[in-house]
């Protein structure tokens, strides 16, 4: 039973918690850079979640090699891995953009604090 709990934690609740930590950051943080970091944490949580969904018990990497020459039903699921690859790249792209945006906001308004930007925002 303990084993079951552990697997649930590591495959589902753990990644989700990381995701929600990011969300918590967005709920409470006022600094634009911290918000960008929160978004990144969310993305990490999501990526971890996706990868963990591809886990197959005692599986090999989905690559044919000299050692694994033919199809065995013990390969890990390649699809989530491919999805994660795409998701990572997209999150990198968004991060690059959002950081550049933060720099511009800082140079224009002189602050990255949302409470101070609040009046200008509306």
């Amino acid at each position: 039973m303990g084993h079951e709990w552990l697997s649930l934690w590591s495959f589902l609740y753990g990644p989700l918690s990381i995701f929600l930590v990011g969300l918590y950051g967005l709920l409470t943080q006022k600094n634009l850079i911290k918000m960008a970091i929160s978004i990144n944490i969310m993305d990490y949580g999501v990526n971890l979640f996706i990868i963990s969904l591809g886990y197959v018990p005692s599986a090999e990497a989905p690559i044919y090699t000299d050692a694994v020459k033919t199809y065995l039903p013990v390969f890990a699921d390649p699809l989530p891995q491919a999805l994660v690859l795409t998701a990572i790249v997209i999150s990198v792209a968004v991060t690059a953009f959002i950081l550049a945006l933060t720099i511009k906001i800082h140079s224009q308004y002189g602050t990255t604090d949302l409470t101070k930007l609040g009046e200008m925002e509306l």
Binding site: S7, L8, S10, F11, L12, Y13, L16, L20, S52, L53, G54, Y55, V56, P57, P62, Y71, P73, F75, D77, P78, L79, P80
Partner: peptide, 27 residues
Amino acid sequence: LGTGLEQGLKLGDRNTLAGKAGEAYLK
């Protein structure tokens, strides 16, 4: 999220490739 997803997901030891798109990719 956890309890909801838990009921549909095939996690950890329960996860197999059978019937998934990934299986066909591997084969």
